[in-house]
Computed example of a mutant assay.
Amino acid sequence: MSKKKILVMVDWFVPGYKAGGPIQSCVNFVFAMKDDYSVYVLTTDTDHGESRPYEGIESGRWTNHLHPDIQVFYSPKASLSARSLKEQIDAVQPDYVYLNHLFSPMFVVYPLWLKFRGRLKGEIVLCPRGALYESALSVKRWKKTPFLNLFRWMGMPRRILFHATNQREKEAVLQHFPGSKVLIADNLPNMRQLPFAGLAKQPGTLKCIFIARIVPIKNLLFLLTAMEKTKDVRVELTVIGPVEDKGYWEECSRKIAALPGNVSVNYLGPKRNDELPALLAQHHLFTLPTTGENFGHAIFEALLAGRPVLISDQTPWLSLAATGSGWDLPLGDPVGFTRALEEAARWDQPAFDKWAKGAWEHAARFIKNPELHDQYLKLFA
């Protein structure tokens, strides 16, 4: 009996990494589903914010270079068109089309339009990936509102299944599209965990790492302000991620230049996903006071590496203190972030080892959850 076909449509895919978490979500998805379905990925041949195609990738044809059971088509971005996408959709003849994010004209709106016109037979499963959270909609709202109105006009609730990655996202979907059919399946994380590895820790010093796109929603400026107010400890911060908002980065740079002598910042720019585990291993604490995350792959990667985290309460990673794996604090309490930084800086070796192992064990429990895979099979039943 032949497997049913899933066609994943997404603007960016590996070897891209500058679009952040959604790429990793799709990579984890295709590897998790390849044994149960024939998996195809339709994407572009150029990373987010770049003009030159990926090196070493053959575009314009289906290839299984990623895995023998995963077919990927890298559409040349320079000649991307509705017609070229329709040709590849027709070539696959998918039973299911899995759409990612919400405001992509070619990889979300166009296939929805095809469904609306009766020109796409496969069932559509759409994962907004946090795009309907207020923190995300508040950015360029003028641009996104017409899309939402178009989706309602097309009668999306009657035509597709929404994939929410948590209860909060399900509520956001129903708020904007009442009557929609929504199923929850937790975000599929990186399932490969290395053995626990420690790191030397001296009381009074703390090496922190921030991994995210440089945009206001990731809240780097908030973190710098919290670090600025630390007393009687030395805090080092490594910042990793592409600068997407130059004005915001200039504001952060001014703050960095004015930091007191006990706080230092080193910006390394963007890094590939395969470079992150080694960088995480060199730091004591992962920091991300984000205003909203659908999942937070960088957060999970830190836990997976056995590094406690200091994050906001605007992610699915809550009640971290109860598991001894970090803090999830309200953004309305900036002093709380400063206190947490000072507490982590004062850790001696046994204290750090306890928190680090707590983080590692928290991630280990998550990836061993037997319900994760079953949740995805229900999406495509």
Rank of each mutant, 00 (worst) to 15 (best):
S2D: 13
L7T: 05
V10Y: 12
S25E: 00
C26M: 14
V30K: 09
V30W: 06
A32C: 10
S38N: 13
L42A: 02
I57V: 15
S59I: 03
N64D: 14
P76Q: 08
A78C: 00
K86Y: 08
V109H: 04
L112V: 04
K115G: 01
F116L: 09
F116Q: 11
C127A: 15
Y133L: 12
S135N: 11
S138R: 14
W142M: 09
L150I: 06
R159I: 02
F162A: 10
N166I: 07
Q167E: 15
R168E: 15
V173H: 01
Q175L: 14
K181V: 10
V182L: 04
V182K: 05
M191Y: 07
M191L: 15
R192W: 06
Q193K: 14
G198D: 13
L199A: 11
K201H: 07
Q202P: 00
L206Y: 09
F210M: 04
F210R: 07
A212C: 07
V215M: 01
F222E: 02
K229D: 11
L237C: 08
P242T: 06
Y248G: 07
S253V: 01
R254S: 11
K255N: 07
A258T: 13
P260W: 00
N262Q: 13
L268F: 01
P270M: 05
D274N: 13
P277R: 03
L280G: 01
A281W: 06
H283A: 12
L285G: 02
L285Q: 03
L285F: 01
F295K: 04
A298E: 08
I299H: 03
F300W: 04
P308M: 08
L310Q: 00
Q314S: 09
W317S: 07
A321W: 02
A322N: 11
G324Q: 06
D328S: 15
D328G: 12
L329E: 07
F337N: 10
T338C: 05
A340T: 05
A344R: 01
A345S: 12
P350Y: 09
P350D: 09
K354T: 15
G358H: 13
H362L: 06
F366C: 04
I367H: 04
Y376H: 14
L379W: 06
